[in-house]
Write a protein that binds this DNA or RNA. Structure first.
Ligand SMILES: [Mn+2]
Ligand SMILES: [Mn+2]
Ligand SMILES: [Mn+2]
Ligand SMILES: [Mn+2]
Lengths: 221, 221
DNA sequence: AAAAAAAATTAGTCTCGTCTAAAAAAAGTC
DNA sequence: GACTTTTTTTAGACGAGACTAATTTTTTTT
C-alpha cells in the first residue's frame, strides 16, 4: 500500500472538491486560492502527481484526477468527515470548531483506525455540516439536488440540511442565530429590494441577507 | 503559543525518555538509535533545538532539556498516552497495535482536543501499557519504584502492572500467552540454570525465560 | 603516554515543498 | 488581426530534515 504526504493528500482533496461540474479540469489558480499557496507551487505539485499517475494533465489545460487519484481523495474526505463527527458527537465540539483539527486528523494513516472509528460512531452517513460521508469502498454522492434558502418564497417551509460556505466565520454566524442543521423554518417576508428574507423558527423571526440565504442548503417541507 | 514540527516534537520526546537517571545529559548516538536516524542528523537537530532554547547543549557533552523543552516533551507524551487509551478503550485495539498510530496522533495540535479527549476517556491515569499519563499541567511521576517479575522467588505472588520493553514484538508475545496488564500470578518454579521461571495464572502454568521476566513490571501481592 | 577505537561533529548532497520574478501562452478587447 | 490582460509555466532560490563520507574529539587500551 503506497502512502502519500500530507501535501499530496491536501492537493488531491482540493482537486476533487473543485472538480464538481468541471469535466474540462480544474485550474491552477483555483487550487492555489483554496490551498492558500502560489500558482507556481501548484504547477510543481501537479507535475509530481502526474508522474505518480494520480492526475491527468496537459500544460495549460486543466487537471483531472485519475481513478487512483480520486480514490485517495475520497479516502481523505471520508476520514475528514468521520473525525468531524467524532469531534462533535463525542467531544462536544461546535460545528464551527472542527475544521482545523479535522484538517490534521484526516492524514493519520491506518486503515484499521478509520474503519473502527466508523463503527464506533455508528456508521454515520453525514458529517456535522450535512455533507455525505463516503463509504469505505469510496462510494458516495455529493449532496447536489438540494435547493438553497434563497430559492424559497413567502409561505414556503424548509429545514436546514447543509451549507455551501463552511468557513468558520459563516458557521459561527449561523450558530449565533441558532440556525443549526435540522432547524425548521418558514419564510414570512421577502424584500425584493435587496433580496433579504425574514424567516420564522423556534418562535423567533430573523432577517437574513441575500448573501446568507444563498449559502444555506435546505430541503423543502 | 509557539508550535513545533513533528520532527522537533519527536526529538524532544526521545530526549525526555532517555533522560531518566542521566543528569549528565543524553548522548547523540542513543537518540539516533531510538529515532532510527543517523548521528549527524541528530547533531543538526540538536543545534536547532539549542537555538530555540529547548535544550542545553555543549559540543561533545550530552544534551538536556530546558524547562521549556521538557514542558513540550511531556505534552506530547500526554497526548500519546491519551490516544493509546482511546484506541484500546473505545476502538478495541490490542495493546500491541496502538503504538504506530499514537505516534502520529500525538502531534495533532489543539489544546481543546487534548483536554476534551481526556474528559471523554474519564481522565485516565495510566495508558494501556501501565505507563502514567501526565496531567494537563505537566505533572506526573514515571513508574519507577516497581519491581520486575525477575525479582520474585518461588511462592511469591504478583500482578502485572507494566512492561519495560514496549515493542510490538514483546507485547504480541505477552498477548499470545494471555499475560495482560492486571494478570495475577504466582511463581511456582525457578530454574537457577538459566533463570527461567514457571508461573501460574488463570489455572495455567507457563514457563518464562529470564529475558521475558526482566521486562515485566509487577507489584507484589 | 602513545596508539587504537568509539563517539560526535562538519562538509557536502539530496528531496520535498514552498516562494518570487520573469517568460510564455491563452483569453479577452477593440 | 493586433493589443492588452490574465493565467500558467519556468527559472532560480530557500529552509527543513535527512543521508554519506570525512574529520575531529573523546575514551579506552596497551
Ligand atoms: Mn489536511
Ligand atoms: Mn464538514
Ligand atoms: Mn511521533
Ligand atoms: Mn504506551
Amino acid at each position: 500500500m503506497k502512502s502519500y504526504s500530507f501535501a499530496e493528500e491536501n492537493y488531491l482533496k482540493s482537486i476533487h472538491s473543485l472538480s464538481f461540474g468541471q469535466p474540462e479540469g480544474v485550474s491552477t489558480n483555483s487550487i492555489a486560492r483554496l490551498l492558500n499557496t502560489k500558482a507556481s507551487s501548484v504547477t510543481a505539485m501537479i507535475g509530481k502527481l502526474h508522474t505518480k499517475e494520480l492526475v491527468s494533465y496537459e500544460k495549460y489545460k486543466g487537471v483531472t484526477l485519475t481513478p487512483e487519484g480520486e480514490k485517495i481523495a475520497i479516502g481523505v474526505l471520508r476520514k475528514h468527515r468521520l473525525w468531524e463527527v467524532f469531534l462533535v458527537d463525542k467531544l462536544d465540539f461546535k460545528w464551527d470548531e472542527v475544521h482545523e483539527v479535522a484538517e490534521q486528523l484526516e492524514h493519520i494513516r491506518s486503515v484499521q483506525l478509520t474503519d473502527r472509528l466508523d463503527k464506533f460512531l455508528g456508521e454515520p452517513k453525514f458529517d456535522p455540516h450535512g455533507d455525505p460521508i463516503p463509504s469505505s469502498d469510496g462510494v458516495y454522492r455529493e449532496n447536489q439536488p438540494t435547493c438553497l434558502l434563497s430559492d424559497l418564497n413567502v409561505g414556503d417551509q424548509g429545514v436546514v440540511v447543509g451549507v455551501l460556505d463552511s468557513s468558520k466565520e459563516f458557521l459561527r454566524f449561523l450558530s449565533d442565530k441558532d440556525l443549526l442543521l435540522g432547524t425548521q423554518f418558514s419564510v414570512v417576508k421577502l424584500f425584493e429590494y435587496d433580496e433579504s428574507r425574514e424567516i420564522k423558527f423556534d418562535d423567533r423571526t430573523e432577517s437574513l441577507s441575500q448573501r446568507v440565504s444563498t449559502n444555506i442548503k435546505i430541503k423543502r417541507l
